[in-house]
Amino acid sequence: MKLTLLDQALDLAAGSIPVALATELSSGRQALVTATLQDGDLGLAPGDIADIRARLLEGGGSGMFELSAGAVFLEIWSPALRLLIVGAVHIAQTLVPLARAASYRVTIIDPRGAFASRERFPDVEIIPEWPDDAIPALAPDRRTALVVLSHDPKIDDPALIAALASDAFYIGALGSRRSHASRRERMLASGLSPAAIDRIHGPVGLAIGAQSPAEIAIAILAEITAVLRGGALAGRSGWYPDGRDG
């Protein structure tokens, strides 16, 4: 790989631009392709570029890929996963480093300065605003997970309503089965459909018997992972005897 091509790929990735890298394994020649540009020492036919762009758009995985002149190894580098945490509470203090270890870019949203302080959350992005302002501005997409942890309906409910208007792949809400049932009632009363509300995972996380804030953070990241990867426990968090999870 040429250093110049690597620099270019890393710059694009840092700007959250999806990148495809095609490698001819016999020669090591490579082509970098994005939705708008193409570079590298591997020549590509226009039809090949179109095929690679189509794969990029699908967000497909990496693997061998047939081009007109033969097979290449095609890597798709998707932008980083994001986790938006509403409520700068104790659980969030463990969830931040855990999620980062699993390659999420983390943002904390909490209008309450006493919680969302630099002392409690050094070196993480904090947005000290109300979630109904902050979340639409962050534009959660299919690679974004969101959890509400504040336990305060004044903060959590508007956050969930904003999240349900997005494509976020995971939406979770902290609280017991009982508080989740009353949350459902409030959200139904506010005009949301049962199907929309069913997207919320509540109680949040897999039912692993978590007690401490750190254990709850582990349960949350485990459930997010199950949903992201389509694991056996996705949609079967274990909180309800009938098998639903929200």
Binding site: A9, L10, W77, S103
Partner: peptide
């Protein structure tokens, strides 16, 4: 994918 970028940055 961050993993990949961290390794390549290194």
């Amino acid at each position: 994918m961050n993993d990949t970028f961290e390794i390549l940055s290194q």
